[in-house]
C-alpha cells in the first residue's frame, strides 16, 4: 500500500498507552485466567512489546482516541457483521445457481479517509462485503474487483454503492 502524500503526525503518549493496553489485553486473553503472577508477567511483556514497536507506532495516529469514538465503532461493527452475513448469502446464491450470474469488473472508488489505518480498515471491510474485493490502494483511490458491476457505473456511483455505508461510521473513529 502506498503511503506517500499521507501526513503522519508524531505518535504521542496516548498512542503508546493504547498499544500497551491492547497487548496486555491480548496477553490476558491468551493466558485465560486472572492469576496475579500472570498479570505481572503480562504487564512486563506488554511494556517490552510497546517499547520495541515504537518505530511503527505512527500507524496508530489515525485513531481517534476519545469516548465519543465508541459509538461510531459499535455502529461500524454492527454494519460490518450485517454486511458479512449478506455477503455470504449473496455468494452462496451465486455459487449454487446453475447459470453462475457474474458481471465482474475492476472499478475505482474514492475514500475521504486520510490515515493509512483508516484506509486499511476500509479496504478490509470492502473485501468482506457483498461481491467486492479490494485489489489495491493508491492514495485516496481504491481499486475494487466487483463481481456484479452494474453497466454504466462511474466513480461516483461505485463510491456510493461500495464505500459510503462504512465510511460514515469509520470517520467517527479513524482519520
Amino acid at each position: 500500500m502506498t503511503t506517500k502524500s499521507i501526513q503522519r503526525p508524531e505518535p504521542g503518549f496516548v498512542h503508546g498507552l493504547f498499544l500497551y493496553l491492547l497487548v496486555f489485553a491480548l496477553w490476558m486473553l491468551l493466558v485465560g485466567n486472572l492469576d496475579t503472577a500472570e498479570m505481572a508477567a503480562g504487564a512486563v511483556v506488554a511494556l517490552i512489546v510497546t517499547l520495541a514497536s515504537r518505530p511503527h507506532l505512527s500507524i496508530l495516529t489515525g485513531l481517534i482516541i476519545s469516548p465519543a469514538a465508541l459509538l461510531p465503532l459499535l455502529r461500524y461493527l454492527g454494519t460490518f457483521i450485517v454486511a458479512l452475513v449478506q455477503a455470504n448469502l449473496d455468494m452462496a446464491r451465486r455459487v449454487l445457481s446453475p447459470s453462475l450470474p457474474l458481471q465482474p469488473a475492476v472499478v475505482e472508488v474514492e475514500t475521504k479517509l486520510k490515515s493509512p489505518l483508516g484506509r486499511l480498515i476500509l479496504a478490509n471491510s470492502i473485501t468482506l462485503t457483498p461481491g467486492t474485493l479490494t485489489v489495491d490502494v493508491q492514495d485516496q483511490v481504491l481499486l475494487v474487483h466487483w463481481v456484479d458491476c452494474p453497466p454504466g457505473s462511474d466513480l461516483a456511483s461505485t463510491t456510493q454503492a461500495i464505500t459510503s455505508k462504512f465510511e460514515q461510521h469509520l470517520k467517527g473513529f479513524v482519520l
Partner: peptide
Amino acid sequence: LFGAIGLIRMPDVYNRIQAGTKAVTLG
C-alpha cells in the same frame, strides 16, 4: 463448503479469491 464450491466453479482467479475469502471467513 460453499466457499470451496465457489473455488471450483468460479471462472477466474479473482472471483475464486472472492468466493474463498468471504465464505470461509464467516464459515
